[in-house]
Design a protein around this nucleic acid. Structure first.
Lengths: 194, 194
DNA sequence: CCTACCGATCGGTAGG
DNA sequence: CCTACCGATCGGTAGG
């Protein structure tokens, strides 16, 4: 182990290359040969580090699911109005999308390629997260702080609104992630028109 | 030709089945055998109606690109403030996504599988549309009607916010498309909080 | 519209 | 970590 930086395992290197390929070409269109080329191995050698193509996708999907669920737990335990909680979660989503774009994109767009029983397990985590997010929205509507509308419409519109970040945003290039975060939070919370 | 309904050509039937499969499994994961099964043909027989898998994707992508460009042209020619034009375009996007979900999804998510030179041609149309949409946003910012922010952030957040509709919305099931449209327009234009 | 088939490529294994 | 290879499946063609 290097004193300065944690040494990456070959498995981590493979996962990071996979995540980039999944973003660029999609999970199905990425072959194990593509992945092997990206890490200078032969396809068969990948299997010394990972057990299958699906395992890589599974790891991406579940790591991100737990990242968001951990964030939710923290927000729930904090004091604050529903609108403040929604803003905190919004910032969590934005930071994940700008800071770890490829991974969050694979998590968002490629989970449907999971096979059972992983697919059901993943969808259960997702539903749990959505249910808890919606509970916050509903309580904000009841207290009159959040606009009265279909909670499910608010939830999905909010989630969706960040989905351009990971196939567009290039950190440090022209726009800072701080400026993007501030503009997006303002637009989602206060709207496009004055 | 039937007197009541325009008879669908086999090509149209194939395209509609393809669009549904691309939505459910993605373009890459959809095989010509899958598509053949969906229309009760053998894979080889598809080629009497279409020339390649990519041709189907090309038709979806370019039909939708022109649909949105036609809408843009109409909105540009209409009188109205920038905010009113943005709202009209927003409604165009929402109606396309709820009314023709599978096609709009393929258009939005699968175009990257086009090969050159189609890919560049498609991206040029997309860039033209985005440029014209951004011009409306900018003029609204200059007149003070639209919140001052990075136009590119506003543009992409707005586009993105509708992307859940086509993998979620089921017309007539619980939520009407009219209610969804009203809630979404209000949320995007006026924000989540009161 | 089908049967029969093409070469290429897929994810993955055997064996060293 | 490689070479060699597996059966399955891919998009697509030939020929009728």
């Amino acid at each position: 182990m290097s004193p300065k930086t944690q040494k990456k395992t070959k498995k981590q290197i493979i996962q990071e290359a996979a995540v980039r390929l999944f973003r660029d070409k999609g999970y199905s269109a990425t072959s194990m040969r593509d992945l092997a080329d990206a890490v200078n191995l032969k396809a068969s050698s990948l299997y010394n580090h990972i057990s299958s193509k699906e395992e890589i996708l599974k790891d991406i999907c579940f790591e991100n699911a737990h990242r968001f669920l951990d964030g939710m737990k923290e927000v729930e335990s904090l004091p604050g109005t529903p609108a403040e909680k929604v803003e905190a979660l919004l910032r969590l989503h934005i930071r994940a999308a700008t800071g770890d774009a490829a991974s969050v994109m694979a998590f968002n767009d490629e989970w449907r390629h999971l096979a059972e029983p992983l697919l059901s397990e993943f969808m259960a985590l997702r539903r749990d997260y959505e249910r808890r997010f919606m509970a916050i929205l509903k309580s904000g509507m009841q207290s009159g702080q959040i606009q009265d509308m279909e909670p499910v419409v608010a939830l999905h519109t909010l989630f969706s609104s960040m989905r351009w970040l990971y196939d567009w945003f290039q950190p440090g290039k022209k726009l800072s992630s701080e400026k993007v975060e501030e503009d997006m939070v303002r637009m989602v919370m206060k709207g496009l028109v004055k």
